[in-house]
């Protein structure tokens, strides 16, 4: 026998089938609540919100893990700290469907 004994498809593919043509949720500007509540701090005149183990700049009540790099408590306590930015769009412009 050269064929697979069994081919089982699991939740990843089944979820993809049901959600196909819908774009994956992209977290841009989010509230960043965890367990229904938020945890904020203000240091050196800048507001931060704790989310996913890191502190993010809080702007108009929201944070953007897609745009800013999360920082540790030690980092944000530094008076000269400036939140790191994440740039996107540097890959994908050559993209065409039906690769090979």
């Amino acid at each position: 026998m050269k064929k697979s004994n069994n081919v089982v498809l699991c939740s990843v593919l089944l979820a993809a089938i049901s959600s196909c043509a819908q774009k994956e949720k992209k977290d841009e500007w989010i509230v960043g609540a965890q367990n229904g509540s938020t945890r904020d701090t203000t240091l050196h005149g800048n507001q931060y919100r704790y989310f996913g183990g890191f502190w993010y700049p809080l702007i108009l009540g929201r944070i953007s893990p897609a745009s800013y790099q999360g920082a540790t408590a030690t980092q944000i306590s530094n008076p000269g700290f400036k939140a790191g930015k994440i740039r996107t769009g540097g890959f994908g412009r050559s993209g065409r469907s039906g690769i090979s």
Binding site: G84, K85, I86, R87, T88, G90, G92
Partner: peptide, 8 residues
């Protein structure tokens, strides 16, 4: 691919 980002 288009959403891959680079930090500082």
């Amino acid at each position: 691919m288009e959403d891959i980002g680079v930090d500082d």
